[in-house]
């Protein structure tokens, strides 16, 4: 019997490998799920240069969005995945099913203005996270990342990488009614 032990160990290992093959080791679950969303208060992006020249920009925080579920989308003009998901975000904005809050992550205001001018702006407001501090509080490790925050301010889901219609229908939509 003891001569069969190595064979048993091998069988167990192979089983784990077979499961492991279907997992992405780099995809991290967010510890924020189910918890109150990190608090943020960020300046609103001025959408034109003229506007930017006007007085100090308004600042918005969690409270401004309470009462309705909303999406927080971390994006940047320098990020390739953001270009990929952008058309779909435009579609979402047209459907108007959910408020889309953009957080412009470590990006120059002028760059993102140009980027939006060329592609359209799907976001309700765009907040500026110039030094990435808000990104750290949300546990962002690679833009684009999209969070669903419930009406009572809890994080319900996080999607890493470009948002796809399939991912939205499957992971976000069923949760939209929750927590209200």
């Amino acid at each position: 019997m003891r001569y069969a032990i190595p064979l048993l160990v091998l069988a167990v290992l192979l089983g784990f490998f077979a499961v492991g093959l279907n997992r992405d080791p780099r995809l991290l679950p967010s510890p924020l799920i189910g918890k109150t969303a990190p608090s943020f208060e960020l300046p609103v992006l001025a959408l034109s240069t003229a506007q930017a020249a006007d007085a100090a920009p308004a600042r918005l925080g969690n409270a401004a969005f309470a009462g309705k579920p909303f999406l927080v989308n971390f994006f940047a003009s320098w990020c390739a995945g953001c270009q990929v998901e952008h058309p779909y975000l435009m579609t979402l904005a047209r459907q108007g099913a959910v408020t889309l809050v953009g957080i412009d992550y470590k990006d120059a205001d002028a760059d993102v203005r140009q980027w939006l001018a060329a592609r359209g702006n799907p976001y309700a407001p765009i907040l500026v996270d110039l030094d990435g501090r808000a990104g750290i509080d949300f546990g962002v490790y690679g833009v684009p990342e999209t969070f669903l925050v419930s009406a009572d301010g809890r994080v319900l889901h996080k999607h890493v990488g470009a948002l796809t219609p399939e991912a939205f229908e499957k992971d976000f939509k069923p949760l939209l009614g929750a927590g209200s």
Binding site: Y3, A4, P6, L7, L10, A11, L14, F17, A18, L21
Partner: peptide, 21 residues
């Protein structure tokens, strides 16, 4: 590719260890 090597490993090591047992 991963699946192929996994099966290959199962065949090579598995049969050697069966023979061993």
């Amino acid at each position: 590719r991963g699946l192929f090597i996994l099966i290959f490993m199962a065949v090579v090591t598995g049969s050697a260890l069966t023979l061993y047992a």
